[in-house]
Design a protein around this nucleic acid. Structure first.
Lengths: 199, 199
DNA sequence: GTCTATAGCTTGATAGAC
DNA sequence: GTCTATCAAGCTATAGAC
C-alpha cells in the first residue's frame, strides 16, 4: 500500500501541474495522459467523473496540502512576524520563487463549471481568513486585519501574474519580504480622505 | 465607411470579450461565432491566420486603446497625483469596477503561442514604463519609481484575480484609491533589513 | 488497474456558391 | 463579405479484453 500511495501522489502531482500550466480548457486528456503516463481509459477508472472530477480532486488535494504545509505556521506559537516569515519562506518554495502560477488562478477561467468555481472561492476565502487571524494576533483591529489580509493575497496573486507575463520574479520576492510588516505593523497616519468604510 | 468601422468595432469588442472571459483555449470558434454573429468561414475571411490572428488582433487593439484612453492622462500636465487619480477613474471604468478580468492575464495561460506571449510581455512592460514616468515625475528616485510601478500593477492584477475568484470587488476599489499615494509619496522610513537591491 | 479500440461529438480550418 | 457544406484532427468518454 505504501507504493500505491506514492504512485497516487506522483499521479496527482503531475495532474496538478497540467491544470496549473494550461487551465481547465487547455488541460486536454491527451496532455494529462502524456504527463501522467496513464492512458485515457485508466484515468477514467480513477476518476469516473472525468475531467471535472480530476480538476476537483486536484483542487481538494492542493487545498489540504496548502493549509497543512503553507498556512500551518500561522496558527502556531511564536511572535506573529516570525510565523509570517516562515509562511513566506514556504510560499516562496511552493510557487517556485514566483515561476509557478497559482492553481486557483489557472482554474478560474471560463468553462461554467459551478463546483470548481465554488471551490476556488472557498479556498481563497479560507486563505484570507488564515491571514486575518495572524494579523489580529499581532494586534491589528478587525477591519484593518481584513484589509491587510486581502492586500497580502492581492500582492501574492498579482506578483504571480506579473511574473508569468514578464518573467520577472523579483517583485514576487519583494511582496513576500514585505508580508511580515504588512500583516503586523499598524499603518502610519495618512490624511483621511473623508469617506472610508469596511471591506 | 463609417458604418463599416462601427461594425468592426462591435465585432472586435465581442471578440475581445470572448478571449477575456474564456482565455485562448476556452475561446472556441463556436463561442466566437455565436458572440459575434458571424459564421466560422466569415471569421476566417477577416482573420486568414485563424484563431491566433484573432487573438493577436484583439491584443493589438486593446493595447492601442489602453494607451490612448487609460494611460493618456499620465503623460499630460497637471500635478502627478491628479493625473494618477484620473487614470484610476478610467481604470475603474475599463475593468467594470473590478468585475472584468484583464485580457493580458486571460491570454497568458498555456497554448505555447510565442507571438501572443511576447505581446503580453511588451504590453505589461509598457504599462509599467508609463507608471514609472509619472512616479519619477512626482519626484521619486528611479529605483523607487520602478518598484512602485510594479507594485501598482501587482495591486491591480491581484485585485482582479481576487475579484474573479471571490466576487468581492472592494479590494479593487481600494487599490485604485491608493494608487496616487503609492506612486507619488516617498516611503516612510522602515527598518532597513540589511540587503536590498534593484528590481 | 491498465490496456486497445472505438464511439460520437467538437475543434480549427477550407472550398465554393451567392 | 457572408453563407452552407465539408474535412481531418482533436476532444471527452465508454466498452471490453487482459
Amino acid at each position: 500500500m505504501p507504493a500505491r500511495k506514492i504512485d497516487e501522489d506522483i499521479l496527482m502531482d503531475k495532474l496538478t501541474e497540467v491544470f496549473r500550466l494550461h487551465g481547465y480548457e487547455g488541460a486536454s486528456l491527451s496532455l494529462i495522459a502524456e504527463a501522467t503516463g496513464l492512458k485515457r481509459a485508466s484515468l477514467y477508472h480513477r476518476f469516473p467523473g472525468g475531467k471535472e472530477e480530476m480538476a476537483e480532486s486536484v483542487l481538494q488535494r492542493a487545498d489540504e496540502w496548502f493549509v497543512s504545509h503553507i498556512l500551518a505556521p500561522l496558527t502556531g506559537k511564536g511572535i506573529p512576524s516570525a510565523r509570517i516569515k516562515e509562511m513566506a519562506r514556504r510560499l516562496n518554495n511552493f510557487y517556485g520563487g514566483g515561476n509557478s502560477s497559482c492553481l486557483l488562478d489557472s482554474l478560474s477561467l471560463g468553462h461554467d463549471g459551478d463546483a470548481i468555481r465554488q471551490h476556488i472561492e472557498r479556498s481563497l476565502t479560507a486563505w484570507i481568513g488564515a491571514l486575518v487571524l495572524v494579523a489580529r494576533d499581532s494586534g491589528l483591529s478587525p477591519a484593518i486585519a481584513k484589509q491587510r489580509a486581502e492586500e497580502a493575497l492581492i500582492g501574492i496573486q498579482g506578483a504571480l501574474v506579473l511574473a508569468r507575463g514578464t518573467g520577472n520574479t523579483k517583485p514576487f520576492a519583494r511582496v513576500l519580504q514585505n508580508l511580515p510588516q504588512l500583516l503586523t505593523v499598524e499603518a502610519k497616519k495618512t490624511k483621511p480622505k473623508s469617506k472610508r468604510s469596511k471591506s
